[in-house]
Computed example of a mutant assay.
Amino acid sequence: MSDEEKALRQVWVVQAERELEAELKFLGMAGDGNVDDMGDDELLSELEVLPP
Protein backbone atom coordinates (compact mmCIF):
# COMPACT_ATOMS: atom_id res chain seq x y z
CA MET A 1 0.00 0.00 0.00
CA SER A 2 1.44 3.35 -1.02
CA ASP A 3 1.71 6.37 1.25
CA GLU A 4 -0.92 8.15 -0.86
CA GLU A 5 -3.35 5.26 -0.40
CA LYS A 6 -2.70 5.20 3.35
CA ALA A 7 -3.39 8.95 3.54
CA LEU A 8 -6.60 8.57 1.55
CA ARG A 9 -7.79 5.73 3.76
CA GLN A 10 -7.04 7.81 6.86
CA VAL A 11 -9.26 10.58 5.45
CA TRP A 12 -12.03 8.01 4.94
CA VAL A 13 -11.66 6.79 8.53
CA VAL A 14 -11.88 10.33 9.91
CA GLN A 15 -14.99 10.99 7.80
CA ALA A 16 -16.62 7.77 8.99
CA GLU A 17 -15.84 8.63 12.62
CA ARG A 18 -17.44 12.07 12.16
CA GLU A 19 -20.53 10.52 10.59
CA LEU A 20 -20.81 8.00 13.41
CA GLU A 21 -20.41 10.73 16.01
CA ALA A 22 -23.19 12.74 14.32
CA GLU A 23 -25.47 9.68 14.24
CA LEU A 24 -24.84 8.96 17.91
CA LYS A 25 -25.64 12.57 18.76
CA PHE A 26 -28.82 12.40 16.68
CA LEU A 27 -29.88 9.21 18.47
CA GLY A 28 -29.16 10.76 21.87
CA MET A 29 -26.31 8.36 22.48
CA ALA A 30 -23.45 10.83 22.23
CA GLY A 31 -20.82 10.42 24.89
CA ASP A 32 -17.73 12.51 25.18
CA GLY A 33 -17.28 12.63 21.41
CA ASN A 34 -14.94 9.65 21.37
CA VAL A 35 -16.31 7.04 18.98
CA ASP A 36 -13.78 4.51 20.26
CA ASP A 37 -15.79 3.97 23.45
CA MET A 38 -17.42 0.85 22.01
CA GLY A 39 -15.51 -2.19 20.81
CA ASP A 40 -16.27 -3.98 17.55
CA ASP A 41 -18.05 -6.90 19.22
CA GLU A 42 -20.16 -4.60 21.39
CA LEU A 43 -21.09 -2.45 18.38
CA LEU A 44 -22.10 -5.48 16.34
CA SER A 45 -24.22 -6.85 19.16
CA GLU A 46 -25.99 -3.49 19.49
CA LEU A 47 -26.63 -3.33 15.76
CA GLU A 48 -28.17 -6.81 15.78
CA VAL A 49 -30.80 -5.60 18.25
CA LEU A 50 -32.03 -2.82 15.96
CA PRO A 51 -35.02 -3.62 13.75
CA PRO A 52 -34.36 -3.67 10.00
Rank of each mutant, 00 (worst) to 15 (best):
M38W: 13
G33E: 05
D40W: 08
V13E: 00
Q15L: 11
L27I: 10
K25E: 15
L8G: 04
M1L: 14
A7I: 06
D37C: 07
E17P: 10
V35E: 01
L20D: 03
D37I: 15
M38E: 14
G28V: 01
M38Y: 13
M29L: 14
E42I: 12
L20W: 02
A22F: 03
L8I: 15
V11S: 08
L50H: 00
L50D: 00
Q10T: 05
E4H: 01
N34R: 09
G31E: 07
E21S: 10
A16V: 15
E19Y: 03
A16D: 10
A22G: 11
D32E: 10
E48P: 06
L43P: 15
Q15Y: 10
E48M: 08
E5I: 08
V14G: 05
L44E: 14
R9C: 02
E4I: 02
S2P: 06
V13P: 05
V49K: 08
E17C: 05
E46Y: 13
F26Y: 15
D40F: 01
M29R: 08
V13K: 06
L50Q: 13
V35I: 14
A16L: 11
G39C: 05
V49Y: 02
A7P: 09
D37S: 07
F26D: 15
V35F: 04
M38H: 12
V35K: 01
A16F: 04
W12G: 07
F26A: 15
K25Q: 12
A30N: 02
P52H: 14
A22C: 04
R18A: 12
E23H: 15
G31N: 02
V11Y: 08
E46P: 15
L24M: 12
S45N: 12
E48H: 01
V14F: 09
D32I: 09
G39H: 00
K25G: 07
V13T: 10
A30V: 12
L44R: 13
S45R: 13
E46C: 12
P51V: 07
V11C: 14
S2H: 01
G39E: 12
M29I: 09
G31F: 02
L8Q: 12
E5P: 04
A22H: 07
Q10S: 07
L8Y: 08
M29T: 00
E21R: 03
E5F: 00
V13L: 03
G28Q: 04
D3P: 01
A16P: 09
F26P: 00
L27F: 10
G33L: 05
E19L: 15
W12M: 01
